[in-house]
């Protein structure tokens, strides 16, 4: 006993390759670029987050002219609540730092050297700040994160630009799907008129094309994405340290990000389906 539910039979099983084929190639290229760009954007975003997290508890205490008190200062700072680590920067290093900024003349000028203490703080540094103000009124407390803020801001801006680029490519891909769909419709104009003549609905006609276009988008897009990911892996393996940040090493691309990248092709296929169907129905509506 067969149920009489109108089953989905393809009306045009032989249509393959007539005008609708461009979608696969277009989407392969688009998804390749999209995946590489997306991976780079994610790596940058993750990188800036890692740097921000790593520097979150890092501070530098600076006491102008207090080079001789550096060790005492370090001991005082280490004794404060919340401080897990406090290291005086060795005099020679401070010397060198100054020399780098002011030139070798700095050494002869016999400038008063500051005391520098690198501090790692658990939680907030307000207690340390208050204690310092009490005991060493001239000392300054600077968070590393503040120093790094401009760099991190720039990294995030580039990552955001990457996201914008991915969206722009997605728009271009959607436009490409519209064009490929129109080409497929134009190539099959006579057949569509014949189907209409036999009483096919617009929905039935659209179904002959939208699935196919979505399927082409999915296979082409998956291919492009896979190639991109393979390329990223190859580069991270063989390309040396300079590029290894992209995939390997410091978990700049983790499993979640990879999953996100693998979601791009089905996402693109779904968008292709919706765009193609809307394009087809709009076009068909203008037919008699």
């Amino acid at each position: 006993m067969s149920a009489r539910a109108p089953r989905e039979t393809s009306l045009l099983p032989g249509l393959r390759g007539k005008g609708a084929g461009a979608t696969g190639y277009l989407l392969a290229i688009m998804l390749f670029v999209m995946t590489v760009t997306g991976a780079a954007g994610l790596a940058l975003a993750n990188g800036s987050r890692l740097v921000a997290a790593a520097s979150a508890g890092d501070y530098v205490v600076q006491l102008p002219g207090g080079a001789d008190e550096a060790d005492a200062l370090a001991r005082f700072v280490a004794a404060q609540p919340g401080v897990t680590e406090a290291t005086a920067v060795p005099r020679a290093e401070v010397d060198a730092l100054l020399a780098r900024w002011l030139g070798p003349a700095a050494r002869e000028a016999d400038l008063p050297l500051p005391a520098l203490v690198e501090v790692r703080v658990e939680g907030r540094a307000t207690a340390l700040e208050a204690a310092l103000a009490d005991r060493y009124p001239g000392a300054g407390l600077a968070a590393q994160a503040e120093t790094l803020a401009p760099l991190l801001g720039a990294l995030r801006a580039v990552a955001l630009a990457g996201l914008g680029l991915v969206l722009a490519i997605a728009l271009a891909a959607a436009a490409a799907v519209v064009l490929a769909t129109r080409a497929a419709l134009a190539a099959n104009r006579a057949t569509i008129a014949t189907l209409h003549g036999m009483g096919a609905t617009d929905g039935q006609v659209a179904r002959q094309f939208d699935r196919r276009i979505a399927r082409d988008a999915l296979s082409g897009g998956t291919l492009g994405s896979l190639l991109a990911i393979l390329l990223l892996f190859a580069v991270s393996r063989s390309g040396g340290a300079s590029l290894s940040f992209l995939v390997g090493g410091a978990r700049l691309i983790d499993a979640g990000d990879l999953a996100l990248l693998f979601l791009l092709p089905p996402l693109a296929a779904s968008i292709a389906y919706v765009v193609a169907r809307a394009t087809i129905l709009r076009d068909l509506h203008r037919q008699p």
Binding site: T9, L11, L12, P13, G14, L15, K18, T191, T194, L195, M198, G199, A200, Q204
Partner: peptide
């Protein structure tokens, strides 16, 4: 429909229904 066999051409109206 050139892409379809004679069989599929004749079957079209029934498939549409």
């Amino acid at each position: 429909v050139d892409e379809l066999s004679a069989y599929d051409n004749v079957a079209l109206p029934l498939r549409i229904m």
